[in-house]
Design a protein around this nucleic acid. Structure first.
Lengths: 212, 212
DNA sequence: GTCTATAGGTAGATAGAC
DNA sequence: GTCTATCTACCTATAGAC
């Protein structure tokens, strides 16, 4: 019984995942995304990570720092991919397609990190240690804006929408894609093919209007 | 001092809003949407509604019931509008445009109700009293699916996306539109014109692909 | 670096005066 | 129908043994 209690929620057998900090981050991200940062307790996070709550404080100084660490991990995965995609050759609409592809890939690969960042990170924006998160967020937005502006300049993207508006629409669609609770309900089959088609709708909607 | 404390956060002077239950619902929706259902406390909700926490229990039996009441108010505003829009004459894509228009109007008119429903209502799905919420949600989804299927049948909507996928994409875009925290950051100017253009992107993306 | 025990604070909800 | 006072439970975080 003690054996079963001490290492609960085992990760898939083939994956040892011996790093405690990473285990804690995984558990925290899922808990934050599912129950909100206030609904997630250090006890349940620790439980999912296979330890007791006080042990978390050997790796992270506070709950807020845990929240910030999840955000940092997310941007560490996203920013380099976005930068690379924005530098690929092709027309504006093609580069935007690359951006959507990599952003969707990163966010569906780490859905809980994405949702934690979107829904819970506003609360710790002004906390010490969160400055880099704000900077990374602005860096990402700047990349999207630049690519869209260039697409509008070369005529491959419609000009009646602001880069900010289009960025927001794409970002919010990706956020919906990562929502594990609603995915199954509404999407039914979360197959990659379906996701690609949804991205195609966004891209086709972003092209210049016919005859215009 | 007691005078200032007892009736805090006054609504606009011209609006008496004497109904306590409605005041509580307004305060609860904003608090739920902003801080999450766990981050929102009965004390702060009561404070925003101009009363003390125990007084809320004269109108709602528990915090969960308050959450459910917000969801009910949202669907009471949305469902009739969706039904009316789905019955308007025209092609499938035109009816879908009507749906998007009324759904956007309702959700931006009651953004906190919408966000509360989206983010926090999953937790009380199986609570007694929440059955009608689940039913209303399924009713809305059915309307969207029907309109989209008809549009695909009459050739005014692309056929390579499932009704569920398109519904989800639109719904998630509307959710993003209601987010008061991010609206200003990303959209910049929350003017109606901008919102209409974003809806146009969705509609244009949903039309049959060119040459196909 | 993990644990048990616990401090200190705040949450939801109730009792009962008015 | 609103209030003050309060109960009980849970939360974050710390202390200190091992």
């Amino acid at each position: 019984m003690n054996d079963e209690m001490s290492r609960r929620r085992g990760r898939p057998p083939g994956k040892p995942e011996t790093n405690p900090a990473e285990r804690i981050l995984d558990a925290a991200a899922e808990s934050f995304a599912t129950h909100g940062s206030r609904g997630a307790s250090m006890r349940t996070i620790a439980d999912a990570a296979g330890m007791r709550a006080p042990s978390i404080y050997n790796h992270f100084a506070s709950k807020d720092e845990l929240l910030i660490a999840v955000g940092k991990r997310y941007f560490a995965a996203l920013v380099p991919e976005l930068q690379a995609a924005s530098r690929m050759p092709g027309s504006g609409v093609e580069r935007l397609e690359h951006l959507i592809r990599v952003a969707t890939a990163v966010s569906t690969a780490h859905p809980f990190d994405h949702l934690t960042m979107v829904r819970e990170l506003m609360q710790v924006r002004r906390e010490p240690g969160a400055e880099s998160l704000v900077a990374d967020g602005q860096r990402c937005i700047a990349i999207w804006h630049l690519v869209i502006r260039r697409g509008q300049a070369d005529g491959s993207l419609r000009r009646d929408i602001t880069p900010a508006g289009m960025t927001w629409l794409i970002f919010t669609a990706i956020t919906g894609l990562t929502d594990p609770g609603r995915r199954a309900d509404i999407l039914g089959d979360p197959s990659t093919r379906n996701v690609d088609t949804l991205c195609a709708v966004l891209i086709d909607g972003a092209r210049p209007v016919r005859g215009g």
